[in-house]
């Protein structure tokens, strides 16, 4: 019973390594698709915002840092914190201290495990060696398997594009909501007036 348990836990710990390593790779951006789009003008709004239903994209919603029951926003909807991934080719930075602690833990695990395997009375070398090689093999094979999944996507080379006239150039709030099938652009009075005046010629570079 103990050996299967030991193997299970060792595999779990080692198996997290390539999973986490692979988890650094950003998922590819979703394919382009047509969606319903509405532009609304709200003269009382304090700022413009773009409301995107979560069903149309695939953001990851982390629980609010304080945990607990999500707070209620307007209309009874929960207020969520979300990660909006930037450049898909950029991998997120890993906490260096966490990696160092993991390294020390790996060393302690392997060191203590090896000493225990060697010092066991009775059946020592063969089964212990098999266990250690199996654990190392899991790490090696899973790393190679994840390696064959392909490298992270590289940033696309910048191509020259025609600069279009700009109708609106400013900031707005990006709001992700659960439910719905329509992307709404809510313009405040200032933004709407700016659009009404007509597009501006692009600044050439």
């Amino acid at each position: 019973m103990r050996y299967p348990l030991l193997t299970v836990f060792a595999v779990f710990g080692l198996g997290l390594v390539p999973h986490v390593a692979f988890a650094d790779l950003a998922p590819p951006p979703p394919a382009a698709k047509e969606v319903k789009f509405v532009v609304e003008v709200d003269e009382k709004a304090k700022g413009s915002k773009l409301i995107v239903p979560q069903t149309l994209v695939n953001p990851r919603f982390r629980p609010a840092p304080g945990g607990g029951v999500p707070k209620e926003g307007n209309g009874g909807l929960a207020v969520l914190e979300y990660e909006v991934e930037g450049d898909a080719a950029v991998e997120p930075a890993r906490n260096r201290n966490h990696l160092m602690i993991a390294g020390v833990a790996f060393t302690l695990a392997l060191g203590l495990g090896g000493i225990w395997i060697v010092r066991r009375t009775g059946r020592s070398g063969a089964r212990g060696l098999a266990l250690l090689v199996a654990a190392g093999g899991v790490l090696a094979v899973s790393t190679v398997v994840w390696a064959n999944a392909g490298p992270p996507p590289k940033p696309k080379e910048k191509k020259e594009v025609m600069l279009l006239p700009v109708a609106f150039d400013g900031k707005l709030t990006l709001e992700m909501v659960r439910g719905g099938d329509t992307i709404k652009l809510v313009l405040d009075k200032e933004a709407y007036d700016a659009i009404k005046t007509g597009p501006k010629k692009p600044e050439g570079k």
Binding site: L6, F9, A10, F12, G15, V17, L99, A102, A105, L110
Partner: peptide, 11 residues
Amino acid sequence: PVAFFLLAGIW
């Protein structure tokens, strides 16, 4: 050893 393997995975 098992505990430290788990710790490595945790961190």
